[in-house]
């Protein structure tokens, strides 16, 4: 297992290097020269040449990348092009919000999907099962930003129970979390159901039954444990997707997390902020990949040996 962890981590590191270079290089190719943008700033008497010199933009791209990553690792994230705010400050204020929102959404989707999927499979084709499957179809078909609008229309405009947007009170997290969790919940529900159904048809379930083990015990202890591998494998994919969706959901609800800041930075052409936030989010995605990979091997011992040899 140690070898597997080391191998996978190394692989993740290589992917991170490639991906971060792609982001870095991409931002360099962006239309509109950063140096021109800075030099045209009304307050400064900088020339574009001087700015290029200062930012090291006339050095080879690999040197620039190495310098940038070195600074990044030492916690020196640079300043915003637009308002000169340290990026570290932006990051500190927004990362917590994104983590909070993503955690609540992930928890919400798991708490909803596992019991519903398990019971749906257990009472296959009952009206309960069909009801949960309808929820799954709706959850996958309704785009999260439209669900957000629906929630706002119902709970904020009509019922006036919840605030439209913002972040000040605990009530503010309810609608963004639901909008973010819905699709993951729906996909998870389907996977839990089909994975459990597969297990229910196996011999060991009949054996446990014959031994007189109670239904609840079979379901929650034995079947759930054996049905875990595909669920854990999927959780990684879902976490990545969730992270991507924070860009949209945070923007709708003006939730001041990383996604909201990144979208804003891109729209305002604040390249230094956009680049750093994009690289950090990419790193988070790759980290989730790694965790999902390792999690799957924990959940399914059969894959351990094979992966270690690979």
């Amino acid at each position: 297992m140690t070898r597997t962890v080391a191998y996978r981590s190394l692989y993740a590191l290589v992917i991170l290097l490639i991906a971060s270079f792609a982001v870095f290089y991409g931002m360099r190719l962006a239309p509109g020269d950063v140096a021109d943008v800075l030099a045209s700033h009304p307050t400064g008497q900088l020339t574009a040449e001087r700015v290029r010199e200062d930012l090291g933009l006339n050095k080879p791209i690999l040197v620039q990348y190495a310098t940038y990553m070195g600074k990044l690792l030492r916690g020196d994230l640079g300043l915003s092009l637009i308002n000169g705010q340290p990026i570290l400050t932006i990051l500190e204020s927004s990362a917590g919000y994104t983590l909070k929102l993503a955690a609540v959404a992930a928890l919400l989707s798991l708490i909803m999907s596992i019991p519903l999927g398990l019971l749906g499979a257990w009472k296959r084709n009952s009206s309960f099962d069909q009801g949960t499957m309808l929820i799954a179809v709706l959850g996958m078909g309704i785009p999260n930003f439209f669900l957000a609008i629906l929630l706002i229309q119902v709970f904020a405009v009509w019922l006036k129970w919840l605030p439209v947007a913002g972040y000040e009170t605990p009530q503010h997290i309810i609608m963004p979390a639901i909008a973010l969790a819905a699709e993951a919940m729906a996909i998870n529900l389907r996977v839990v159901r089909s994975s459990v159904l597969e297990q229910l048809g196996l011999d060991y379930v009949r054996t446990l039954h014959a031994k007189g083990v109670s239904d609840q015990r079979i379901l929650w202890l034995h079947v759930l444990r054996n049905a875990l591998p595909p669920i854990v494998a999927l959780a990684g994919v879902l976490m990545r997707t969730l992270l991507g969706y924070t860009l949209i959901v945070e923007t709708i609800f003006r939730w001041p997390g990383l996604g909201y800041q990144l979208v804003n930075a891109v729209l305002k052409r604040d390249y230094t902020v956009a680049q750093t936030l994009a690289i950090l989010l990419t790193a988070a995605v790759i980290l989730f990949n790694l965790l999902a990979d390792l999690g799957q091997q924990w959940a399914d011992p059969r894959t351990r040996r094979q992966a270690g040899a690979g």
Partner: peptide
């Protein structure tokens, strides 16, 4: 492996920076 399952929105944000 590099791109599969990568959040499309995040990639799009990078491409919007490009074009």
């Amino acid at each position: 492996d590099l791109v599969w399952g990568f959040p499309v929105i995040l990639v799009a944000v990078i491409f919007v920076g490009l074009v």
